[in-house]
Write a protein that binds this DNA or RNA. Structure first.
Length: 816
RNA sequence: GCCGAGGUGGCGGAACAGGCAGACGCGGCGGACUUAAAAUCCGCUGGCCCCUAAGGUCAUGUGGGUUCGACCCCCACCCUCGGCACCA
């Protein structure tokens, strides 16, 4: 381990205190500079910061600092995502109140975050679990409710019969057991609140004008999962059932004549009524079985398809045939109509199902050259319609439209677009979240809490018992209230909101965090929003980013602002892994940065994290390479502080070279930071440092040029190593602060090369290289190439077929 | 299974408008300094052929192809990592 030439702890502390005292990074709206809103996803208050947080924070800070130096009024805020399940678990396990636990973590994490030395404007800090914040989270619920975007419906939750409580997915462990008491859990329907995100499905698939990674856009489009097809009515005739039809959604109306069975989701309400007595026992057993399965299990491709015939039939109106009705777990009640038509000949899943249960397979789309033989597998490609009445002979692609037209004319169905996207379920049966501001009145029904009564405060004296009972549900003073409408006795909603709700608008709040007349100061919001650059992990591709976009669009439609997208540019860094796994407390492979920071300073840790590789790739944590960074910064320290410069034999060519290298480096570094290529940016700075070390030894440039080059190096390094460069900058007699200096200006003239290395190949193989003036003509270059001894040796006795010249690059002599 | 990203020295990674493969750094080897070690500095560091040098030759997951020229483009395949999960 190299010995450090400077005391990083002392330097870090000194400058962090000074910057804070001078409010160096606090920004205001009255700046003449153009605004730039640089945001990093805020951390959850898990307890402490690990190296993965640094990997997210440090490079984005470098970029923000770079933007500052480039002349932008950069807002770079930080805060805490503070509501959530772990706080409540800690409360139950260790008897600490969630508020106490969370705020202790905030204190700790804030201190850790400050050691990064980032240009955060801490005056804008936001903590989502404080009433001053969640008052507005509740306010947004009311706004969405008023806009008709919030509604109540039944939805299944994991239910532990022993704890008498609902469980999050992650609380269900092993083979479907409660993590607390190991009782087998099951799905149970509860009335819950939803946001109508599906209303924005089409708009959410659009990303025009956004500078986002292609893969995230693709993931979001797949998440919406738009599919166009038709809803088709099948005739139903069943004693005691009012419904005269069952409707299915299909993307393949052209195959409707090939329907040989129908499958309903087991939880479909009509299943019960349509099941015949002789099938009842088996059907009920199957339904009970399904209730124990998670959606992921139900949809697993690994699993063999199962299902049960329920004894009833429907009629295919197009050909009058009776079709048997089944239930199967692979049909989801939440998608389409919850009923699927089975066309085994033209759908692989249906084919497997029909084979297993011996259901007829009827070909209705003939593959080219089909002679009537049986299928080995489903034919899902294009073909010609057969066995399809008046549609016979039609290419199936046209058949989709033709069948749809026919259905619409007969009123047996209609064209329809379905989405995979479901409405956003925001109810959580827990304490540690923003209360849903609703009241249930026996007289007036569902009544929203008036705005003036917000926030609905979480009662502080709630009890956290290991029974799992929701603390709010059993808190009488909280539950019992009066109806805002008729003033009679009423009860409060006891569910709280999904924490994604809190993180869907925090980036608005940063614009004016202290504001109390609304969620934000409209003038300030107008100045700062939308976010110019948002960085964070790709794990938020669909949930957080998607909800935030929905929120923004909904608020835009309420007239709260005019833009429809919150994040103009998005960048996802990769994940830092340890022991080949993602870091997590439960795996026990968390790398804590504090010791590293203490020993070698924030600048070394910042630089090393960026030097590992491309930011978007992440990588395995291994501190072995850190020595390289320490050595480099030590060399720099020595160069600037310990080794004074003396002119020995000043040489005009050397001065010119120095200027050229300086400007080439400015170009590389500027371009690299702008594109988040921090690893190559650091290589360029290392090369430049090495070059200056040689110049210092040689003493062949004038003093002024040398010092100017050193200054340029410090300025370019300032975003990466803010503490060290500030120290060196002031020690070399410059006025504080380097972080208020402009970014070095690039000159193309200065960077231009006079000589260039021409590569000479024979048949594409490297044979020689010559240094030539950049101005060399094609004829001269080719001539020169053919004169080279090594080239001659390789073309001797052969015919020159062609000579290829790539200006400034190479000459390739092709011989036969 | 589908979608996406990626496979380059002992290691992290450079080079991608098709044009010097291995920048920068780690590690290793050798040397200087030292009583010695650490630290520091200097040199070497993909494989093979060759006494050495000069040079040659093979090398970017595998096999083909396009091209004067391929890490880069096309086809097929094999791995690794993310995401989605029977979406009707």
């Amino acid at each position: 381990m190299p010995v450090m030439k400077y005391d990083p702890q002392e330097i870090d502390r000194k400058w962090q205190e000074r910057w804070a005292k001078d409010k160096l990074y606090e920004v205001h709206e009255d700046s003449p500079l153009p605004k730039y809103y640089a945001l990093t996803m805020f951390p959850y208050t898990s307890g402490d910061l690990h190296i993965g947080h640094w990997y997210a924070m440090a490079p984005s800070d470098v970029h923000a600092r770079f933007k500052r130096m480039q002349g932008f009024n950069v807002m770079h805020p930080q805060g805490f995502d503070a509501f959530g399940l772990p706080a409540e678990n800690a409360a139950i396990k260790r008897g600490i109140h969630p508020h106490t636990w969370t705020m202790k973590n905030v204190e700790n994490m804030r201190l850790q975050l400050k050691t990064i030395g980032a240009c955060y404007d801490w005056s804008r800090e936001v903590i989502t679990c404080l009433p001053e914040y969640y008052k507005w989270t509740e306010w947004f619920f009311l706004k969405l409710y008023e806009a008709g975007l919030a509604y109540r419906a039944k939805a299944p939750v994991w239910w532990c019969p022993h704890c008498q409580t609902s469980l999050a997915n992650e609380q269900v462990v092993g083979a479907g057991e409660c993590e607390r008491c190991s009782t087998p859990v099951a799905r149970r329907d509860l009335e819950q609140w939803f946001f109508r995100i599906t209303k924005y499905a089409d708009e959410l698939m659009e990303h025009t004008g956004l500078d986002w990674p292609e893969r995230i856009k693709i993931m979001q489009r797949n998440w919406v999962g738009k599919s166009e097809g038709a809803e088709i009515s099948f005739g139903l005739e069943h004693p005691g059932v009012a419904e005269k039809e069952l409707r299915v959604f299909t993307t393949r109306p052209d195959t409707v004549f090939g329907v040989t069975f129908m499958v309903m989701a087991p939880e479909h309400p009509l299943v019960e009524k349509l099941t015949t007595p002789e099938c009842r026992a088996e059907v009920e057993a199957y339904i009970a079985q399904t209730r124990k399965e998670s959606e992921i299990e139900r949809q697993s491709t690994e699993k063999e398809k199962t299902g049960v015939f329920i004894g009833s039939y429907v009629t295919n109106k197009l050909n009058g045939e009776k079709v048997q009705l089944w239930i199967a777990d692979y049909v989801l009640f939440s998608y389409g109509t919850g009923i699927v038509m089975g066309v085994p000949a033209h759908d692989t899943r249906d084919f497997a199902f029909a084979k297993k249960y011996d259901i007829p397979i009827r070909v209705v789309i003939a593959p080219p050259g089909w002679k009537g033989q049986e299928f080995e597998d489903a034919w899902v490609e294009e073909g010609t319609m057969v066995n399809s009445g008046q549609f016979n002979g039609l290419p199936n692609v046209q058949g989709k439209g033709a069948v749809s037209d026919f259905l619409e004319k007969k009123d047996w169905g209609k064209r329809k677009t379905t989405y995979r996207l479901r409405d956003w379920l925001i109810s959580r049966q827990r304490y540690w979240g923003a209360p849903i501001p609703m009241v249930y009145c026996p007289e007036c029904g569902i009544v929203p809490v008036p705005e003036k009564d917000l926030p609905v405060l979480l009662p502080e004296d709630a009890e956290f018992r290991p029974t799992g009972e929701s603390p709010l549900k059993y808190h009488k003073e909280f539950v019992n209230t009066t109806c805002p409408h008729c003033h009679g006795p009423a009860q409060r909603e006891t569910d709280t909101m999904d924490t994604f709700m809190c993180s869907s608008w925090y980036y608005f709040r940063y614009s004016s965090p202290g504001y109390d007349k609304g969620p934000w100061d409209p003038q300030k919001l107008k100045y700062w929003l939308p976010v110019d650059l948002y960085t964070g992990g790709a794990e938020h591709a669909v949930m957080h980013l998607f909800y935030s976009r929905f929120f923004t669009k909904a608020l835009r439609d309420m007239g709260l602002f005019e833009f429809g997208e919150p994040f103009i540019r998005l960048f996802n860094q990769g994940t830092i892994i340890a022991e080949h796994q993602k870091m997590s407390k439960s795996r026990g492979n968390v790398v804590n940065p504090d010791e590293y920071v203490k020993e070698m300073g924030a600048d070394v840790v910042r630089a090393y994290l960026m030097f590992i590789g491309p930011w978007e790739q992440g990588g395995e944590w291994n501190d072995a390479g850190m020595n390289g960074i320490i050595r480099w910064l030590n060399r720099l320290w020595a160069l600037v502080i310990e080794e004074s410069y003396t002119e020995k034999k000043v040489d005009a060519a050397a001065i010119k070279d120095l200027h050229r290298i300086t400007h080439q480096t400015i170009h590389r570094v500027t371009d690299d930071i702008a594109k988040f290529r921090f690893n190559t940016m650091l290589s360029a700075l290392m090369e430049f440092t090495n070059y200056l070390g040689k110049a210092q030894e040689a003493g062949n440039v004038d003093k002024a040029s040398y010092h100017e080059a050193i200054d340029t190096l410090l300025l370019m390094l300032a975003p990466t190593a803010p503490h060290l460069t500030e120290e060196l900058w002031t020690r070399t007699g410059h006025p504080y602060s380097i972080h208020q200096r402009p970014w070095p200006k690039f000159s193309a003239d200065m960077a231009a090369e006079e000589m260039v290395t021409l590569v000479i190949q024979v048949n594409g193989k490297l044979r020689d290289r010559v240094s030539v003036p950049v101005s060399i003509s094609e004829a001269e270059a080719k001539d020169l190439a053919l004169q080279q001894e090594r080239v001659k040796a390789h073309i001797q006795g052969k015919n020159i077929a062609q000579v290829i010249y790539v200006p400034g690059r190479l000459v390739n002599v092709v011989v036969k």
